[in-house]
């Protein structure tokens, strides 16, 4: 792929803290390499801002290899930018042309309040996991592979659901700000495996209750979440959670 440099205009959301109002600010960045990642481009901009004695832009990042789920930018009208099944850190500048104007916003959700600039508070997801996204039994050492036979299809589906990195792009993409894709992936990965069975019913009930408490919107099945998910989590998980929730609600003895 041919290498090229580009000059860009960036419109970035600046917000001092969760209480302040926030607004867009325009920046110019020059000589950006097409081989840089989107976050590296932000590093260049921040170096420039620090050099000029201005405040750098705050943004979340950690592994920068698409597996941690920390990065969270709404780039030109899409979470994680224009590429499919891709995180912001793995978005490369070759996705843009010289002279482009790029608008960058934080995730917009009442459950994800802005902490500063492009960083949002995603502890709502942590509280949902704390409500039931685990197994309480001590599993001990790894067992022999054939001790616990699991259907290939179930193992595959559980693994696909477990690929969720909890970045929140599903919430950001959803017109209702619903967290159903995230929660359903976390419910599914345990509901499909034997270790998840003892707490299967309380898990789904508690996690959905917590999800509603956090103020996420409702799922209206537009499937925007699946289309924008960097890990390609399937909406089949949402259907599975609906079924799990219904069954658990009918079975519960309390």
């Amino acid at each position: 792929m041919e290498h090229y440099n580009m000059n860009l205009t960036l419109k970035v959301w600046k917000q001092k803290n969760s209480q302040s109002k926030g607004s867009f600010e325009t920046y110019k960045v020059n000589d950006i390499s097409s081989e840089m990642s989107f976050l590296e481009m932000f590093d260049v901009l921040n170096e420039q801002l620090v050099h000029d004695g201005k405040e750098p832009i705050a943004f979340d990042h950690d592994c920068r290899e698409g597996i941690c789920g920390a990065c969270s930018m709404y780039i030109d009208g899409q979470p994680h930018g224009p590429w499919q099944q891709n995180t912001t850190c793995q978005l490369h500048m070759r996705a843009f042309k010289d002279g482009d104007t790029i608008v960058v916003e934080p995730w917009r959700s009442s459950a994800f309040p802005v902490i500063k600039d492009l960083i949002v508070d995603r502890t709502a997801f942590d509280r949902i996991i704390q409500a039931g996204g685990y197994i309480s039994v001590n599993t001990g050492n790894a067992q022999d592979a054939n001790n616990l036979p699991i259907k290939k299809q179930d193992a595959d589906d559980a693994f696909s659901a477990a690929a969720c990195i909890g970045c929140g792009a599903c919430v950001a993409a959803c017109k209702n700000g619903s967290a159903m894709l995230f929660v359903s992936a976390k419910v599914s990965q345990l509901a499909l495996l034997p270790q998840g069975q003892p707490e299967r019913e309380t898990r789904v009930l508690n996690m959905v209750t917590q999800m509603d408490k956090e103020g996420f919107g409702n799922c209206t099945n537009t499937y925007a979440c699946e289309a924008e998910c960097p890990k390609g989590i399937s909406v089949a998980n949402i259907a599975r959670m609906n079924k799990e929730y219904l069954k658990a609600g009918l079975n519960t003895k309390e």
């Binding site: 009208g77 917009r108 009442s110 459950a111 209702n176 919107g217």
Partner: peptide
């Protein structure tokens, strides 16, 4: 659930 809309 989304009090502030996206600009783009």
């Amino acid at each position: 659930a989304r009090p502030i809309a996206y600009a783009v």
